[in-house]
Design a protein around this nucleic acid. Structure first.
Length: 328
DNA sequence: AATAGGTACAACCGCATGTAG
DNA sequence: CCTACATGCGGTTGTACCTAT
């Protein structure tokens, strides 16, 4: 059944590589070529995991790697590619000869992010920070409640993947997957009064059935845009941002006096109460992400795929170099 | 000189997908 | 067809080095 493990994980060396170990890898590769990494530690006389050997080779020892500073031109390429495709480091690295995904990622995290921030550009959205701040200030609820917080973790906490639903639901309900969650939401929506719900959201009352921002933040993180600032996306995009991009099964977390909370548990965020002034956040979401957020319709697979393809087409137009990657 | 804090980057971890047995 | 490992990837951590006090 299956294959034997490549190494005894408990008894292999970890940490920095010594010149002697590097020499063994180099000697092995020069004699046997690259590949079959599970055999490398044994054959090269190393007390390392094969995976560790492979990483050492691909990220450091490969003879075609550059070890000098990144050039201005490389910097510009990284920034442009990151703006277009986000943190897909391996794709970006393919367009920078001699650089690995690890190189590019480290350079971005240690240098370029700070450089952009100094220039007044938000490294996540690639938009001017002044524009972002003015957009946030235009969200009346947040400014009225003095809830403009830092643009990173707190936004995650207040907007990640949360919905409210009518008081008929049971807290503690967990969903096997996003699809079952979608089905649940659609059933709820179909049995409620959309017009009154929408109305009450827009005038800031919190006692009705609906429902707000969904998993837009998760989608935004994955796509390197701030969903709160995206105003020109399609209805289809919004729907799948909300319900298809969630990264873990949703569940109802708790019941408040007026409504219950449904959320998706994120690795770095968990919505546990209503302290964020949800009526105002509802307005914020409505202001920023279009009213389609509330008019749930069953998603068509075709429209979902079409949206993905449209997005890739845009990338291809801006970056012809990605033709090979996006040509599927 | 000692040390605390910051920075850079190598290495590891964990997940998703592919594939050998 | 199923299981378990290999591989590739992005996120995160650990550590050596640098700088300021």
């Amino acid at each position: 059944m299956g294959r034997p493990p490549c190494c005894d994980k408990a008894n292999v060396k970890k940490g920095l590589w010594t010149p002697e170990e590097d020499a063994k890898i180099l000697a092995y590769v020069s004699n046997h070529g690259v590949g079959n990494w599970t055999q490398v530690p044994k054959k090269a006389g190393l007390n390392r995991c094969g995976k560790s050997c492979r990483l050492r080779w691909t990220n450091y020892l490969r003879p075609d790697l550059k070890h000098e500073e990144f050039t201005e031109q490389e910097e510009q390429l990284i920034i442009q590619y990151h703006a277009a495709i986000g943190s897909r480091w391996s794709l970006i690295a393919k367009h920078l000869p001699g650089r690995t995904d690890n190189d590019v990622k480290n350079y971005w995290n240690t240098k370029l992010k700070k450089k952009l921030a100094k220039m007044g550009i938000d490294p996540v959205t690639h938009k001017p920070i002044s524009k972002i701040l003015s957009d946030y200030e235009s969200i009346s609820c947040l400014s009225n409640n003095h809830q403009i917080r830092s643009l990173d973790q707190n936004i995650t906490n207040s907007f990640s993947s949360q919905c409210k639903i009518s008081p008929s639901d049971n807290p503690g309900t967990q969903f096997q997957d996003v699809t079952s969650f979608n089905r649940y939401i659609l059933e709820e929506v179909s049995s409620s009064s959309l017009s009154s719900s929408t109305s009450s959201i827009s005038n800031g009352q919190s006692s009705s059935h609906l429902l707000v921002p969904t998993a837009a933040y998760s989608w935004g993180q994955k796509n390197s845009v701030d969903p709160l600032l995206v105003t020109d996306i399609t209805e289809e995009e919004h729907n799948y941002q909300g319900f298809l991009a969630a990264d873990s099964p949703p569940q109802i977390l708790e019941k408040s006096s007026q409504f219950q909370l449904i959320g998706v548990n994120h690795s770095n965020s968990k919505v546990t109460d209503d302290k964020f002034g949800m009526p105002d956040c509802k307005s914020a979401a409505k202001n920023t992400v279009t009213s389609s957020c509330y008019d749930y319709e069953p998603l068509s697979v075709n429209s979902f795929v079409k949206t993905l393809l449209d997005r890739d087409n845009e990338i291809q137009l801006d970056f012809p170099a990605f033709d090979d990657i996006l040509d599927y």
